[in-house]
Amino acid sequence: MKFPQYFSLLIVSSLLFACSNESDSDTEKSGIPAVITPVPLDTYFPPITRTDEWETVSIETLGWNENQVDNLYTYLEDNDTDAFIILKDGRIVIEKYFGDFTKDDNHAWNSAGKNLTSMLTGIAQQEEFLSITDATSQYLGEGWSSLTIDQELSITIKNQLTMTTGLDYNVEDAFCTDPECLIYLNDIGTTWYYHNAPYTLLDDVIANATNTDFNSYFSEKIKEPIGMQGLFIKVGYNNVFFSTARSMARFGLLNLNQGTWDDTPILLDTAYFNSMTNSSQDLNLSYGYLYWLNGKSSYRVPGSEVEFTGSLIPNAPADLYAGLGKNDQKLYMVPSLDLVIVRMGSASSEIQLGPSGFDNELWGLINEIIQ
């Protein structure tokens, strides 16, 4: 007896449905869980051979809120961002470029590059080329400023690292490093003011102490060992570092691992690293050795003599430390969350030399994703 074709299909479908139910039932009875991608717990270091190879981890795997990512992207784009990266344990979670900017394009770090100079100073000290308690004059010679000899000899490398030189920041050009621009205002170590000129002179201190070109020493000690690219370029009086966003992320990862890249020690001096990333003086608790610090009880900002009460970035984790540059160049490092976050672009609103309102707004959106 022959069945019509639709009866044959009905019988086959019923059998498949029965088998499917039986299979599902058997899986449930066996207790076999659904496949879940484990969260990698080890720290990943991308290869130093300057390839595109870099491990990623998904937002879903981390259990973060993917629904909030578009809000973050909209905010970044609306605020003239060129590049944005989030690393978790060294792996890329988010990497986004805007407009014509690409992962191969270089961007100015501006004052976020102060972090590079600070770490390089620590390396020069561990190699015994200098001590941060040395007088700056030991490496720049007599007459590098318009101070008296005694005043000049009182300024140390540590004063340059901590913005406590006492030099006059009210001069016509606060970036000027010529002797006539470097005049006495306050006793050394009695005031904190974000003064670029004494910081810039650290480059000459390091070059003279090591008897080598500043870029060459940086390349040998930091850039090449961790696979960065980029270059310090003279812009007026300033020495500005330019690199890709991924190179900035690499340096952030080096910091997150306290100066060690994978198994290669870069900055061995743990005492210096701890001093660099903690309050370096009592005048601005939110400042280390050229690093900005969150979670302190008060802070001062560039261009102001006022002390503000509270944390530098209230929305951000208390243990965050950062490189913060003009036009909102951001390098955030958060040890408690194993995060490195990079933002490069133009100014989000009004031009600021370091911290700005953009930091807190951005962290509000980041929290919506990671929490």
Rank of each mutant, 00 (worst) to 15 (best):
Y44N: 00
G122P: 04
F45Q: 01
G230R: 00
T177W: 05
L116C: 04
V342T: 05
L10Q: 09
D282Q: 14
D338F: 01
D338S: 15
H107E: 11
I341C: 03
L312Q: 02
A322S: 14
I313G: 05
N278C: 09
N208D: 10
I123E: 04
A83R: 05
E28Y: 13
T74Y: 08
A108G: 08
P198S: 11
I351L: 12
S58P: 00
D82V: 01
F214E: 03
Y289A: 06
K88G: 05
T133L: 10
G63V: 04
I188K: 10
A347W: 06
N238H: 07
I92A: 10
D70G: 02
L331T: 01
G364V: 01
S311D: 14
G227H: 02
Y237E: 11
P40G: 07
D42Y: 03
P4R: 11
T309N: 14
N257T: 13
Q160K: 13
S25C: 08
A316M: 07
L62Y: 06
W261F: 10
V35Q: 11
D203E: 13
D213A: 14
I94T: 00
D168Y: 11
E127P: 01
Q125F: 09
E172P: 04
S279K: 12
D82I: 04
V39S: 08
A124M: 09
S131G: 09
N255I: 00
N257Q: 15
K103A: 12
F84L: 09
N71M: 10
F241S: 03
Q352M: 12
T49P: 03
P198K: 03
V35M: 10
F251H: 06
Y217V: 08
S146H: 08
D178I: 00
E361R: 12
M333E: 02
I313A: 00
C181R: 00
L147D: 04
N67C: 03
N211R: 12
W363E: 04
L201M: 15
N327W: 11
P265Y: 04
D282P: 08
N67S: 15
F129W: 11
D359N: 15
L62K: 03
E172A: 14
I233K: 14
D52K: 11
E368K: 13
L41T: 13
D104H: 12
S216V: 13
L267T: 00
H107R: 06
Y272M: 02
D338M: 01
R250N: 09
I183N: 07
S13Y: 06
Y237H: 13
M344S: 07
S349F: 11
N327P: 00
T43I: 13
N79D: 02
H195K: 02
G345T: 06
N211C: 06
P314C: 12
L202V: 12
S137K: 08
D105P: 06
T43S: 02
L231F: 13
D282R: 09
L182V: 11
E350Y: 14
E128I: 04
M1G: 13
S118P: 08
N170W: 12
D78A: 15
F84N: 01
M163L: 15
N65C: 10
L62S: 07
R343P: 05
K88P: 01
A112F: 07
E128K: 14
K223P: 02
I266L: 08
Y289P: 04
S304V: 03
P265I: 08
